[in-house]
Design a protein around this nucleic acid. Sequence first.
DNA 1: GCGACAG
DNA 2: ATCTTGTCGC
Length: 287
Amino acid sequence: MAASPARRRRWEREQARLRTGLLEEDTEPWQKDPQFSGLHRVGGVDLSYIKGDESRACASLVVLSYPALEVLYQDCRMVPVTAPYVAGFLAFREVPVLVEAVQRLQQEEPQLQPQVLLVDGNGLLHPRGFGIACHLGVLTDLPCIGVAKNLLHVDGLVRDELHREQVRSLQRSGETLPLTGTSGKVLGMVLRSCSNSSRPLYVSVGHRVSLGTAVRLVRACCRFRVPEPIRQADIRSREYLRKQPCAPVEVLEAVPASPERWVCGQGGSAPGLSCSNGIKGTGRVTR
DNA sequence: GCGACAG
DNA sequence: ATCTTGTCGC
């Protein structure tokens, strides 16, 4: 894709502002949101892929402390990939191995269970209102938040010039913009997560978290543009691939999938997190 | 009709 | 997601 003159100008302007020190690290107490006083562990997941390899990937699950954002747990391993990537069907490609990772954590270090999970991709901001963050949330019964770095075109939302202009209007970190589809529903929020990057994040409800809480929590986890849990998971999986590109796929120990795991609503929401999302399809599942 | 469209 | 070089700045 050829860089448009306009985009290049914006980039140069951003660089210039960086050089002159107009954009500085956030100094605001982004981790001190009183709403999250009961929050101690935030999880993040990510998969890294190898260029010409459609059958393997490196999956990682990390758990960070809050508000210190230090890595308490990490699980990084080669996993088999069965489905291709198709926009709108990401969950079918990544969720299976992520569920197994969460189950391993629950088995081996239950005390490190995250109170909320940040997922690469969308939740409600999805053609069928059920993106990977919803999918993973329901299967693990963990509160999940969808964090995408690009806009998925859905319900009339497109990354056209108008959208780019709206994104440009987000000047300071923490500023948001609702993503309202043609249907009139607010499907997510555009979030400028840090002052150093003009590229936003697309936050949406995954499971058992309200949109407002999701946005504040994501921002509370941002040292850089990508929230630390996802960033740490990303760093670990690509570093693993860099060092051991030929690592064999691990034989996955079949954790018995007891139906109880799929029955949600037995635990409350994470301490300090409001859990009302009022969204059909991602609420509690009662068999 | 064709193409855009999370990772 | 991945492929890539240098460049600028703290």
